[in-house]
Amino acid sequence: MKIVLTAKGKSWDSKIDPRFGRTEYIFIYDEDSDKIETLNNAAVVSEAHGVGPKTAQKIFDANADILITGNGPGGNAKTVLESGNLDIYVGASDMTLKEAYDAYKNGKLKKF
């Protein structure tokens, strides 16, 4: 499974970025190969409109299966993510990435 987390940094100790569209990093963990890939999402800072679908597109293109985030995506982003058959889990706002991943594994995050 490919898990995507919205993150404020590039390591497991970084905090979850509660914002979806304007998340600082996109942290991609491939469970099968145990590999991590991070995408810097800083470019969205200069965008006034449509950052939700833009961020969602990056996640769509990464072929992810699961998204773990804080507040959850807005309507347009949700439309994009749904077309990629992705399950979304929210409520990980104050956690580190590691804590959020464990919480997801233990069924403690809310499905969006």
Binding site: G50, P53, V80, G84
Partner: peptide, 10 residues
């Protein structure tokens, strides 16, 4: 304005 987006094959 990110109003048009290529997603996979659509």
């Amino acid at each position: 304005f990110n109003a048009v987006m290529k997603l996979g094959k659509r």
